[in-house]
């Protein structure tokens, strides 16, 4: 039981954290159409997170609810990929301020959705029929997110000198974080062995093909990744997640007995 719960929380935390990040663009997009598109991506992710937390809460029993899981766990309890909690700009410390960069947003959404189209597809065959149903819905959404982010990635890479430079900088910044995808966690291994989850390493070739193909079309260079591999899915995060959660959870925690 706890195998499935840990795995569901990993998937749910991914969705809620990126949903929270992408919603930051609402009202600030580079063009009205993109404001609407990013809000859609965010809504899909929040929707996925809700279903996954609800499933986890059901398996946990007691007084667990989707909102207790999203709002009343601390950063170290979150199991999302580090990639998804980073702010929409280049490498800066947690309390640094910077303008949002749309290239960072697009590259991140591309790298993540290129994984999730494969992961959700594999999870449609999960032994947990609830998770399989969530995956069947989510794979359609991830396919749209991939389409959207890939289109913009190519536009940026093959657009102007400035957009190319921004896209390449975002790729160079974010690519090392994708190494975390392939380092199995105990929760993932246990879930894969139980038939609930997927051995994520089996998805690498498919992800590489999507990434290499898009980078080639976008005239972007794929950097070599060496050194530290992030461990957000083990609960060891960047400096950025506690800021994100501090904001997201502030109102719910200020009124722990409130009803919304």
């Amino acid at each position: 039981m706890s195998t499935a719960i840990d795995y569901l929380l990993h998937l749910a935390d991914n969705a809620v954290v990126l949903g929270q990040r992408d919603a930051e663009w609402c009202g600030h997009g580079p063009i009205l159409e993109e404001d609407l598109a990013l809000a859609n991506v965010s809504l899909d992710l929040i929707g996925q997170a809700r279903l996954l937390y609800q499933r986890a809460a059901t398996l946990m029993g007691g007084d667990a609810t989707e909102d207790k899981l999203a709002y009343f766990r601390d950063a170290a309890d979150f199991r999302n990929y580090t990639l998804l909690e980073l702010p929409h700009h280049g490498p800066l410390v947690g309390y640094a301020a910077s303008d949002r960069d749309y290239a960072t947003t697009i590259v991140r959404n591309f790298l993540y959705s290129a994984l999730m189209v494969h992961l959700w597809d594999a999870l449609t065959r999960s032994s947990d029929s609830e998770l399989a149903a969530i995956a069947a819905k989510s794979v359609k959404e991830a396919t749209y997110h991939l389409h959207h982010s890939r289109d913009w990635l190519v536009r940026f890479g093959d657009g102007t000198d400035e957009s190319h430079a921004r896209a390449q900088a975002a790729v160079d910044h974010l690519m090392p974080y994708t190494e975390e995808f392939w380092a199995s966690s105990p929760a993932e291994t246990a879930a894969a062995e139980a038939g609930v989850g997927v051995d994520v390493r089996t998805l690498r070739a498919g992800w590489d093909a999507l990434v290499n193909d898009a980078f080639a079309e976008a005239t972007l260079t794929r950097p070599a990744c060496r050194g530290y591999v992030t461990q957000g899915k083990l609960g060891l995060h960047s400096e950025h997640l506690s800021f994100l959660l501090g904001e997201m959870q502030s109102l719910a925690r200020a009124h722990p007995n409130g009803c919304w």
């Binding site: 600030h28 997009g29 580079p30 063009i31 993109e34 303008d99 949002r100 749309y102 536009r155 940026f156 657009g159 102007t160 400035e162 957009s163 921004r166």
Partner: peptide, 11 residues
């Protein structure tokens, strides 16, 4: 801030 995004799309 979005000018470069729109320029890229047009280019």
């Amino acid at each position: 801030d979005g000018q470069w995004v729109r320029d890229a799309a047009q280019a």
